[in-house]
Design a protein around this nucleic acid. Structure first.
Ligand SMILES: [Zn+2]
Ligand SMILES: [Zn+2]
Ligand SMILES: [Zn+2]
Ligand SMILES: [Zn+2]
Lengths: 131, 131
DNA sequence: TTGTTAATTGTTATAATATAACATTAAATA
DNA sequence: TATTTAATGTTATATTATAACAATTAACAA
């Protein structure tokens, strides 16, 4: 799905999420797009739902925050993995073909009809490990 | 950590979560333990925090729900994986040594000082796949 | 083009989830 | 026992998310 096919509010909100370039919360988005005419939570949540559905953004479940997808080659809104630094709060999306293949086949072997997964790693990023 | 070392509220709430034997939400817990004298959200959330910390329960992040740990041999509140059926809502904890080893070493190779992870698979369970 | 349907938007209110703050009590331990 | 740490009780409030419904716009077939 291309950016051009997005609706007005979806575009405004995706633009903002891509601009901030780090996980951001729904109400923070709301505050920051009010100047663009988006006034109420449902308008934000609807756009977020759609953007998650089409894989333009992901939800970091442990943080109730949303981040733009960095994997241009990842059609997979359905297989997400993140590293989350518990010190500086940096979040980065993991794009590792082997990992996603491993997890998909793991789940299929386990007898479930696989649809998607979300994996969140917590620890200290490289920078924070040194300190 | 043994059950005997838990405080009164922690015991009440763990007992209840173990009894229901499926993911349950904080306010649902609250309603169900009021007869035991637990009256307000902070009492529930404090106990939940502690029980998560010591690995007696886990939080299913995508559902904001809590479930008792089934892995008696898993000390690892730090490495959790779940299968979640999108049809019947059944949640089961995955206890697979290979998987946890794979994920831990994966993250260490990636340069992060690993602390924990949470993995949630979504799809259709065996029962629901047949229908 | 026009009627029909589906998608999106705007709006108000409210539900559901979680924490702040502070006083009190109980338990651990030096 | 004195001290300090953990747990509790309580009220209020913050944060996250959805319900419900009216109005508007876009998509598309007749
Ligand atoms: Zn992505
Ligand atoms: Zn860091
Ligand atoms: Zn467990
Ligand atoms: Zn099922």
């Amino acid at each position: 799905m291309q950016k051009e096919t997005l609706s007005k509010n979806q575009k405004i909100i995706l633009d903002y999420i891509e601009k901030v370039n780090e996980p951001i919360k729904a109400y923070s988005i709301l505050h920051n797009v009010q100047k663009k005419g988006i006034k109420a939570p449902p308008q934000v949540y609807r756009a977020l739902d759609k953007l998650v559905e089409i894989g333009k953004i992901h939800k970091i479940e442990s943080k109730n925050a949303f981040v733009a997808c960095k994997n241009s080659n990842c059609q997979i809104s359905k297989a997400t993995a993140f590293s989350i630094c518990e010190s500086c709060e940096e979040v980065s999306e993991i794009s590792d073909h082997k990992l996603s293949k491993y997890l998909k086949t793991f789940q299929e072997k386990a007898g479930m009809k696989f649809n998607k997964y979300n994996l969140e790693f917590f620890g200290l990023c490289k920078k924070c490990s040194i300190k």
